[in-house]
Design a protein around this nucleic acid. Structure first.
Lengths: 147, 147
DNA sequence: TTAGGTGCAAATCTTTTGCAGAAAG
DNA sequence: CTTTCTGCAAAAGATTTGCACCTAA
């Protein structure tokens, strides 16, 4: 559980308080790294451990963690924001495979955009700070079920 | 103005009616192809020509055009859906440069993802039907102003 | 003539905010 | 102690929906 401690240190060192609500939220995010949770999802999961937490606090905590680059706020077009734990501070190198049949979201860790990014940088004189790439399609499982 | 006619033909051939509201909305979308309009933006622009149109109709028309693949509904993370006219039926090959300083959204017409897409297809056995790539950063203009 | 479309207002859903009380440092 | 947090309820936005009235085909 080194991860929780590293992040709480970061909170404290920047003058934020470590409250039980924040710690519980952090734990949920870490336990569900694979899951791309919405604020509501996080709220329900935190509620299991700390029934008194309010939804507004979850929103506020997620916003704080986004500012601290602990999580990344994402939008997959389904009307809710989802939050991804960042793997490291400078990580902007993972993509998503979104299955249109079952809705599963899988991560692709390889980057593979360096060349295209350099091209954009040169051709459009655009300084790329981050990028975001999603593939929509049919996952292996759904494809095999259809047969 | 061949574009309007082509799309209205498509509407009619699929059993939808061509109403003045739909035509006006279509014209606005075509005249502002570069602009990544939100539903509200479209509403205000259509209202200039046809003051009686309702916001709900604009939403319904945009939904219809999305189903028909005439436009693509996009989400840049600013809380509103934006609509991009598709360049052709099978087009999934344009990316966006989003300037974090001024908010401008520019299009990149090159694809350059073929290789990565093939890799994903092979490695994850994921059938890619579409993709979506945004670069966030600083545009040329904002970069030069900062000096 | 009639199925589909429209405008309006109300409803819904996600996210944000004001405020008084609570608690971390 | 004091500043920051929290929960609650209300507010704010964006989008959707129910319904009675229109209108394109």
């Amino acid at each position: 559980m080194r991860q929780v401690e590293r992040i709480t240190q970061q909170l404290l060192s920047q003058g934020y308080k470590l409250t039980p609500q924040r710690e519980a939220t952090l734990r949920v995010l870490i336990e569900h790294q694979e899951d791309h949770l919405s604020a509501e999802d996080v709220y329900l999961l935190v509620k299991e451990k700390a029934p008194d937490i309010g939804l507004a606090t979850v929103y506020r905590t997620l916003e704080l963690l986004t500012d601290l680059h602990v999580v990344e706020k994402m939008n997959f077009g389904d009307g809710v924001a989802r939050y991804d734990l960042r793997h490291d501070r400078h990580d902007h190198h993972h993509h998503h495979l979104i299955c249109l049949a079952c809705g599963a979201i899988q991560e692709v860790m390889e980057d593979g955009l360096e060349e295209l990014e350099a091209h954009v940088q040169r051709t459009y004189r655009f300084t790329v700070l981050n990028h975001r790439l999603d593939f929509q399609g049919i996952c292996a499982q759904c494809a095999s079920e259809k047969k």
